[in-house]
Design a protein around this nucleic acid. Structure first.
Lengths: 193, 193
DNA sequence: CCATTTTCTTATCCTACATCAAGGCGCGGG
DNA sequence: CCCGCGCCTTGATGTAGGATAAGAAAATGG
């Protein structure tokens, strides 16, 4: 599965064999069944993941027991509680698999080793972080200012492959509405064609 | 006003005179009147700011003309559209002053020069960014899962000094509700004492 | 220091979405 | 084959917060 990561990286930046070989030992290939919990909200997590196959998500469970999905991570996405991992603090959210998946796990050492991996990789991960920050900002803005229907259309744009692949209750948990409401929104949208 | 920043930094990390002197030229002290726009949503911004006096905010205006506040920045806070600044891209949000303020402005060069400022400062700004990432995550989670009243209590905890200092419509724009609703919530809370 | 604008409150009515409840459909296991 | 069970839909009703309006209080600026 490491070869998958190599292809992914080489498509995005110039990367020598030596540089990739320095990165590889930090990553642990792993096969995960469906519904496996990788990080548990409130506990100190040990891993983040790069997804080569399948799909993961990060989510919180609120006091009323309701789930809220923060992020989906299908193929070629990174997912982690970066802050908790680096600072060895309890995670704000959980991470689990939605399907049988292939992942490359990394621990806190990954972030410590980053500076030694050379400028191209270091810059790449730095930008990755900035992108994720910006994505989060956009999401907050959308949550504050858009209707459920607009956010659903946004979701389809962000994760085109997932709209059909995931059960509707997960999409609803991402949008911050109930499955019933999403069902009605879909009906509404279907009618308008 | 640079001395203000120096005190702030020295309280947080070991910092030599030479290191501070390398940082100082990147910062432009500036006095701003109330309601001055520093960054305009949709335009390429030129500055971020460290606030030594007064208060700024970042916010978006949605298509219905409603304002949504992303962040407040009173004394000793940093505020910037980091992504847009670094990538010379149009800002996702605006930044303006809520009061007459003293700030230290910085441009895109600030981020370019960071690696040359030495480990303590570089690490500090790296962690600053992680904190802001985590704050954003917490905020997204709260927006998705908490009621307006809970978020108001959260706000008071996050910005104790601002609850009395800012007009209620700004707090409402931060919480994602109308001033009328916030007024009701306050009444409700006052009654329960 | 007055005129004007902004700010805050309160009341009434309205709407997007939640909650509760029931029924249909596809699907894997005995 | 049919039972049970997620999953999705649909309907009826409830509710948090929005929209609108109006008036009092406070801040701002000429």
């Amino acid at each position: 599965m490491l070869v998958h990561l190599k292809n992914y990286l080489q498509a995005k930046l110039p990367l020598s064999e030596a540089q990739f070989d320095a990165l590889a030992p930090l990553l642990l290939p792993r096969h995960l069944a469906r519904q496996q919990v990788l990080v548990q909200q409130g506990e100190v997590g040990r891993y983040g993941a790069f997804v080569t196959q399948g799909c993961l998500r990060s989510y919180v469970v609120d006091k009323k027991g309701k789930e809220h999905v923060l992020q989906f991570a299908p193929e070629n996405w990174w997912i982690a509680d970066q802050y908790g991992l680096i600072h060895h603090e309890p995670a704000l959210f959980s991470i689990d698999t939605l399907e049988e998946s292939q992942v490359l796990l990394f621990g806190p050492d990954f972030y410590q080793q980053l500076p030694q991996l050379g400028p191209p990789l270091q810059t790449f991960f730095y930008e990755l972080q900035q992108n994720s920050m910006q994505a989060m900002q956009k999401r907050l803005i959308a949550t504050l200012s858009a209707t459920a229907e607009e956010r659903y259309l946004d979701f389809i744009r962000t994760y085109p492959s997932l709209a059909q692949r995931l059960p509707l209750r997960l999409i609803a948990a991402y949008l911050g509405i109930t499955p019933e409401s999403l069902s009605r929104i879909r009906k509404e949208l279907a009618g308008h064609r």
